[in-house]
């Protein structure tokens, strides 16, 4: 066990040393890997922010349940009771008086409302389900519409569907982009390791002759690939945070012009860890592929 640990320690140290042997080439490789990881990661964060913005937009993924104008307090209370018992629903009651008051406060509506002989607005419930998938929203809307004394159920399902389809398309495009850049990262690591194996040919030949196993020879290269990928991932996290920082101001100003407050959300620290781990994994894979093919020449 201690021999195994000692060999891994030595391989890791050797991989670190190799990173600093040719600093310029290391920096360039890290930049390529960093940028390759930044683009899909940045896209993911933007899409996540967009999804958040969409779900916070007024009315989206909410169901308005309008009661019959003739519904009594008891009948409204019965609907309230049903909503209270339903699992996975948030809701609030908007009495018709409050609805009228809000309408009055809307610019240009005060005079119109004042001219009305009576309150034309019904009691309403604003329902916010936890499951906001378009299909689930539609099913819930249908169920709510079937309840007694419910006159109308309003769900902007077309908007929800369009938005959801847009997000799905974005996610798919992002996955394709991530796949392409992951392949790019593997290719960069593959080539770097191939050059390293060529440069270390004498050492590999001697090591094999004096009893080194393939695992022993591979190990420093695998660590090198993983380290390069991990540092590339951290660089990508840095670039992404820098980009978000730069965009935060203009996005906030744009949102203010539309009368809403919106701030770009940066991913948590775990995002950087995921990027570094992903980079390390891809780097390890590229190195494994490269060193396995390169070592065949020494057989």
């Amino acid at each position: 066990m201690s021999a195994w640990l000692s060999q891994h320690r030595a391989a890791l140290a050797s991989a670190f040393r190799r990173l600093f042997v040719a600093p310029m080439s290391t920096v360039l490789s890290l930049l390529v890997i960093g940028i390759a990881l930044t683009l899909p990661a940045f896209g993911y964060v933007l899409l996540d922010n967009l999804r958040d913005l969409g779900s916070r937009a007024s009315g989206v993924k909410q169901i308005s349940v309008f009661m019959d104008l003739g519904a009594s307090r008891k009948e409204v209370g019965e609907i309230e009771g049903r909503l209270r018992q339903a699992a996975g629903l948030g809701w609030r009651f908007v009495p018709r008086e409050e609805a009228l008051k809000r309408l009055q406060q809307t610019e240009g509506m005060a005079e119109i409302v004042a001219s009305l002989p009576r309150n034309p607005l019904p009691d309403a419930f604003i329902v916010e389900p936890q499951d906001t998938e378009p299909a689930a929203l539609e099913a819930l809307g249908k169920e709510l519409a079937s309840w007694p004394k419910v006159a109308h159920v309003q769900l902007d399902s077309a908007w929800v569907k369009r938005f959801d389809a847009f997000l799905r398309l974005g996610r798919l495009a992002l996955m394709m982009l991530a796949g392409l850049f992951a392949a790019g990262l593997v290719a960069v690591t593959f080539n770097t390791i191939r050059l390293q194996v060529m440069a270390q040919a004498a050492e590999i030949e001697v090591a094999r002759m004096i009893g080194a196993t393939d695992a022993f020879i591979r190990r420093p290269f695998l660590y090198y690939g993983a380290l390069q990928g991990a540092f590339g991932g951290l660089l990508a996290a840095g670039l992404m945070l820098g980009g978000l920082q730069l965009l935060a101001g203009p996005v906030g100003e744009l949102a203010a012009l539309y009368g809403t407050a919106f701030a770009l959300q940066a991913p948590a620290t775990s995002g950087a860890v995921v990027l570094a781990a992903g980079g390390a994994l891809l780097g390890w894979f590229g190195a494994q592929l490269s060193v396995s093919l390169s070592l065949r020449k020494f057989d």
Partner: peptide, 22 residues
């Protein structure tokens, strides 16, 4: 078949590293 990118001591250390000695 010596390695010229390292010291004499490091050349001799190689078989021991392969054997996994501390």
């Amino acid at each position: 078949k010596l390695l010229f990118d390292r010291s004499a001591l490091d050349n001799v250390l190689l078989p021991l590293q392969i054997a996994g000695l501390s």
